[in-house]
Design a binder for these strands. Structure first.
Length: 436
RNA sequence: GGCCCCGUCGUCCAGAGGCCUAGGACGCUGGGUUUUCAACCCAGAAACGCCGGUUCGAAUCCGGUCGGGGCUGCCA
């Protein structure tokens, strides 16, 4: 059993193609088959090396690997169609000499019989049948002698011994053409499997008009590999038992093309985000710390100082529970990094009051005298002061929060103050009090 | 227009003739918890497109219809 994915390097890896690749990969893994990646770059105008690299790199990021093909090699060379034009031309000439194709304005067209039909079995859609009277003679070689997709792709599938062609449903109606070529070359027919398409929120085929739908764009948004993998699996398939969160091992164990739904699915970013939050929260502490530091350093374009790392270590566990993507991280911890500290004046105004002022002054005095600046002591002081001044929690705490973190929304207050440390906390309180 | 595919809550998925007064999840609404925001817990609104047929019985089978989508390129 041999499956393949054949992306065209005419754009970055699109989530639709990533999903198709993923399903192929899952099926190959589940059945001990061979998985092959080739590059379908017959469109020399639009294909680029950068896109090819992006596609390969993002397959890898997703956890998709392959046994044969571009970048890993194999018995068939480089697995790039642009390097095999001679082979395609040879086949076209053969078809020409056999009278199965003819020249038309310098291009070569495959001669489709006027009647008869093409039948094939599709794993997702069942028995398919097309009348040849509905299929036009199609170009296999352009007038510049470069092959079209139909020719090159089909020959590659034959030459590389592909036994199951699983691809997007958009190519379903081209399948008779491919079978015609295979028959003309006396080649065994592979099985077919046309996977449902991914749509945007407007119900149309997912494309650039829905924004940046590349895998890279989601990585840039702070989506975890596990979440993307998991979510993509859920579009058109499910492992059963209402299971929503699972890893690749479970998916490989349960996956089968016959369980893939025939109807298209709308890509719902909200659910991806939810899953991502789930994965972030279920990451163990050390791993999250590594990921977080890496993310923050990236966002800041600098390495972090030891002091900053120490402060972060304290706060990270509570931040971990509060973010949905990695990109939510830096804004939440910025207040304890060596970066310019600014208090949001509008938010300060909304919590400012004479009571709040005296509360800040009070806790500052007490913090100053505090020998052990521990979480427990901070909480003790802040709660006692609240009682002493007979203030509502919100009044004292929110004012403190804005004074120390700069905004009304922050990680838990005691942890924030504790992570910041005594000196900096005192300084910020003083600064705020001064400005009153 | 022609050919083809598809049709269960807004969205994703479960459902393969009686277990369905249709289940789970995201999102949404309300409530609880609470130092903000999250997380978490509880509750709620929300769907078998429609019409026929088969059957004792249909979301599940068949036909039609309507709706959506894909293809219809010397793009893939």
């Amino acid at each position: 059993m041999k499956l393949r994915i054949a992306p065209s390097p005419t754009g970055k890896l699109h989530i639709g193609n990533a999903r198709t690749a993923l399903f192929n990969w899952l099926y190959a893994k589940a059945n001990n088959g061979t998985f092959l990646v080739r590059i379908d770059d017959t469109d020399t105008e639009r294909s680029t090396e950068e896109f090819k690299n992006d596609i390969i790199q993002n397959f890898r990021w997703l956890g998709i690997d392959w046994d044969e093909g571009v970048d890993v090699g194999g018995p068939h060379g480089e697995y790039k169609q642009s390097l095999r034009f001679e082979r395609y031309q040879e086949v076209a000439n053969q078809l020409l000499s056999e009278g199965l194709a003819y020249e038309d304005d310098g291009a070569v067209r495959f001669k489709v019989p006027d009647n008869g039909s093409i039948e094939f079995k599709d794993y997702v859609r069942g028995d398919m049948s097309f009348n040849l009277s509905d299929v036009e003679d199609f170009v296999i070689l352009r007038s510049d002698k470069s092959p079209t997709y139909h020719l090159a792709s089909t020959i590659d599938d034959i030459d590389y011994g592909i036994t199951i062609i699983a691809r997007g449903e958009d190519i379903l109606s081209s399948t008779p053409k491919h079978i015609l070529i295979m028959q003309a070359l006396n080649s065994d027919l592979p099985d077919f499997c046309h996977l449902p398409l991914l749509f945007g929120p407007d119900g149309k085929k997912l494309s650039k008009r829905h924004g940046d739908t590349s895998v890279e764009a989601f990585r840039d948004k702070g989506i975890l590999q596990e979440a993307m993998f998991n979510y993509l699996c859920l579009l058109g398939w499910s492992p059963g038992n209402d299971l929503e969160k699972f890893d690749s091992e479970l998916a490989v164990e349960k996956f089968d093309f016959k369980d893939v739904l025939p109807n298209s699915a709308i890509f719902d970013e909200k659910k991806l985000l939810w899953l991502n939050g789930l994965y972030i929260r279920s990451t163990n502490e050390e791993d999250f710390e590594k990921t977080a530091i890496n993310q923050i350093e990236n966002d800041l374009s600098r390495t972090l100082f030891t002091d900053e790392l120490n402060r972060l270590t304290k706060i990270l566990p509570s931040v971990q529970e509060r973010i949905e993507t990695l990109n939510d991280l830096t804004p939440q911890v910025l207040f304890l990094l060596d970066e310019p500290f600014v208090v949001n004046s509008e938010e300060w105004d909304s919590v400012n009051s004479t009571e709040a002022q005296s509360y800040l002054e009070n806790i500052r005095e007490k913090f100053k005298d505090l020998e052990e600046f521990s979480l427990e002591n901070i909480e003790l002081i802040m709660r006692e002061t609240l009682k002493d001044l007979d203030l509502k929690t919100k009044v004292g705490f929110q004012a403190t929060r804005v004074a120390v973190t700069g905004t009304k929304i922050s990680p838990p207050l005691f942890e924030s103050i504790h992570s910041l440390g005594k000196e900096a906390s005192l300084a910020r309180l003083a600064e705020t009090i001064e400005k009153l």
